[in-house]
């Protein structure tokens, strides 16, 4: 039996080499890993790889029509970043409702994505914004990367398509069209420090009153954050009126698959989805 190890690589390729053999647990902000490892839900593997020291894995830049967010960017940094506030207000809103000041200071975007909670606060706006994830590996001498849409990346509660030897390095978001509409709603009695009973993200473009490129994302209403595709298709290319809003809200309610737990019953979650989609669309129709 080999002793457990702790590694804190400073370069990406070193980190990827450390991940190569598998059996590694990746540590970034630690805010989820600490709780999950202590409860036994996520036992720490023989190698604990702290990726926080890797240079160049944090920060937000705009390039090639995308906003590129390094995996180690903290929620607090996102919340304060000018590019995020300007172009991704729904993500900024989600970050504002994220846990607490202390956790926003420690938790990273990459961590929130890889934790893949159905109620993950940033996942809903990211899904609505059409985000994709970038994964890196070093199977041999060279570093390889691949990208995939966030909706495909997350496959179940706490489950993603990341392979054990891969590291999520960045989130990429197409820069939303100017004049686009973004909304985020998280249900709770508090501004933050709350696990969402439901959350909603809406990204669309309103052209002469007609909705285009509608993307509605819903959190905590299914095993993974999901798109409300039936509601989206009802709204696409249409002008909002009370009847359409009512119908789309009902469609969203009917297409979610919530569970009952200590936070809310499935019935109540469906009711919230309908009422809040309706409110969000009414708000968009009046803006």
């Amino acid at each position: 039996m080999t002793a457990d190890t702790y590694l804190a690589p400073k370069r990406l390729d070193e980190a990827l080499e450390a991940l190569r053999g598998g059996e590694a647990t990746i540590l970034a902000g630690g805010t989820d890993l600490m709780v999950q490892s202590q409860s036994g839900k996520t036992p720490i593997g023989p190698k604990l790889v702290n990726i926080r020291r890797i240079a160049g894995l944090a920060g937000v830049v705009r390039a090639d029509g995308e906003i590129h967010i390094g995996a180690l960017t903290t929620i607090a940094e996102l919340l304060e970043h000018e590019l995020v506030r300007t172009h991704l207000p729904s993500l900024a809103e989600a970050c504002d409702h994220f846990a607490s000041s202390q956790i926003r200071n420690a938790g990273t975007l990459g961590g929130n994505v890889c934790n893949a909670s159905p109620a993950g606060d940033t996942l809903v706006p990211l899904l609505a914004l059409g985000a994709s994830v970038e994964l890196a590996a070093k199977p041999d001498a060279a570093v390889t990367t691949r990208a995939m849409p966030l909706g495909e990346f997350i496959v179940g509660p706490g489950k993603t398509q990341r392979k054990p030897a891969e590291l999520l390095t960045a989130i990429r978001i197409p820069v939303p069209a100017a004049g686009g509409v973004q909304r985020f709603f998280k249900f709770g009695t508090r501004p933050a420090l709350d696990i969402a009973a439901i959350s909603l993200g809406l990204v669309t473009v309103k052209e002469g009153g007609v909705l285009r490129h509608v993307r509605l994302a819903l959190g905590a209403v299914a095993p993974v954050p999901m798109r409300g595709v039936r509601a989206e298709s009802m709204l696409e290319g249409r002008r909002l009126d009370p009847a359409l809003i009512e119908a789309a809200a009902a469609a969203a309610r009917d297409e979610v698959r919530p569970i009952s737990d200590v936070r809310a019953s499935d019935w109540y979650r469906r009711e919230l989805v309908r009422n809040m989609v309706k409110r969000m669309l009414t708000d968009v129709s009046q803006s």
Partner: peptide
């Protein structure tokens, strides 16, 4: 709960969630 709040490199964090080696 925030009872273990400390400041690390100028930012407050929960000491209970931070791995000591970090």
């Amino acid at each position: 709960c925030g009872a273990c709040t400390i400041i690390v490199d100028g930012r407050s964090v929960n000491a209970c969630l931070m791995f000591a080696p970090d």
